[in-house]
Simulated assay, not measured.
Amino acid sequence: MALPGIIFLMVFKFIPLLGAVIAFKDYSVFQGFIDSPWVGFKHFSTLLHHPDFARVFGNTLMLGFFKLFVIFPVPVLLALMINEIRKSVLKKGIQTALYIPHFLSWVIVGGILFDFFSLSGLFNMIIGWFSQEAVLAMQESAYFRPIYVLASIWRDAGWGTVVYMAAISAIDPQLYESAMIDGASKLRQIRHITFPLLLPTVLVLFLLEIGNFLDLGFDQVYNLLTPMTYNVGDILDTYVFRTGIQQGQYSFATAVGLFQSVIGFMMVYTFNRLSKKVSDGGLW
């Protein structure tokens, strides 16, 4: 039963790691992986000394911070609230409504947002009722990060509750019965039973999310980005796409990907050590 999963990991995760060698070469499609000349850390040096690196890396860190500390907790809160709904039909209806946006690609979500925030869109209609001037929010730097956060929550928060709802359903009902006999309110049951028993699952998913701290998702940011918002929304993935892949600089693009992976590994290792000191949880 484990064989399909092992084959998937080997083909799509481990074998492609061999291609990381081109980060240390001047790769040419005509010379191939083996015969392309070695250049050592040239591409890493180019990245670190590029005049746009500080801006792009800062944007990546900022959006990664929002993803980790603003977006990540939302599915946990949603799962706790959904769990308290006692009417089965209402509960399933809310879950379904929250799941549906996840099945929309970011291309579609980006199109919806551009229509929503257009001059004739719903956003400008609403602020027009309060005698405010229309704004092109998708072209304004000040609006990009709030839109990024809200779009991420709307599309993925509902789907993120699946694992947490499964973990909550595994909690022994006798614990709640004992708490009710002792006079514990719903809030105290959540505080002293549901959340503590849900915490190990939250911790594991948090550590996995840290590993993707710099991997924000190219498709999401790219479909929300405009030239006017590069100063606050241009991240490593979109920067590499423009300066590396579109210009055929595959070695440079690989070097940036390896740079992101190394930082992600360091963060996972550090936070895993911290989590084992604070609690018994951890990835290893």
Rank of each mutant, 00 (worst) to 15 (best):
I193E: 01
L48D: 12
T60F: 03
L48M: 15
F65H: 03
L80D: 05
L274G: 01
L80I: 11
L122F: 04
Q247E: 15
F123K: 02
G281V: 15
F8Y: 15
Y176E: 01
Q174R: 15
K67T: 10
K186V: 07
V56H: 03
T60N: 03
I112M: 14
L61A: 12
Q220M: 11
M228A: 15
P51H: 14
E209Q: 13
F144C: 05
H50T: 04
G93N: 09
A255Y: 05
D115M: 10
F44K: 04
L216P: 02
K13S: 14
K186P: 15
I112F: 12
E177P: 07
M266P: 09
P73E: 04
I168V: 03
A157D: 02
L17T: 03
V163S: 09
V135G: 00
S141L: 03
Y269H: 09
I235G: 10
T243A: 12
P4K: 09
F144P: 01
V204Q: 04
Y222M: 10
G183E: 07
W159H: 13
I34S: 15
M165S: 14
I210G: 02
G183F: 03
Y239S: 02
L3Y: 14
F271E: 09
D280V: 00
Q31F: 10
A23S: 12
A134N: 09
Y230R: 14
F117A: 07
I193K: 04
I190Q: 11
I82E: 01
L198P: 03
V256N: 09
I100L: 15
F271Y: 09
V232Y: 06
G40Y: 02
D215H: 10
T194S: 06
G111M: 05
L224D: 08
G282Y: 10
L68R: 05
F259I: 10
G158E: 14
G217N: 08
V221D: 05
G183R: 04
M165I: 15
L224M: 10
M10Q: 09
L17S: 10
V204T: 11
I6R: 02
A255W: 02
K276P: 06
V162G: 02
S120A: 09
S185Y: 12
A137N: 04
G93D: 09
F14T: 00
Y164L: 00
E209C: 11
V162P: 02
A170V: 11
V202P: 11
N223L: 00
L9Y: 10
A137D: 03
P101H: 06
I263C: 08
S105H: 06
V107Y: 02
D215T: 06
I112R: 05
A253F: 08
L77A: 14
G5I: 07
M10E: 03
I108N: 08
S120K: 01
F123A: 12
F195Y: 15
H49Q: 12
G282W: 05
S185G: 11
S275R: 08
F30M: 13
V221C: 05
V21R: 07
G111T: 01
M62Q: 07
S169V: 01
M81D: 00
L197G: 01
V29E: 13
F12G: 04
Q260T: 11
M165H: 08
G160P: 08
A157M: 05
L77R: 07
L48G: 13
L207Q: 09
D156Q: 13
D115H: 13
I126M: 01
I153A: 14
F24K: 08
F30E: 15
L104S: 13
G5A: 15
L208A: 11
N212M: 00
T270K: 11
I126T: 06
I85C: 07
G217V: 01
Y99T: 05
I85R: 04
L90K: 12
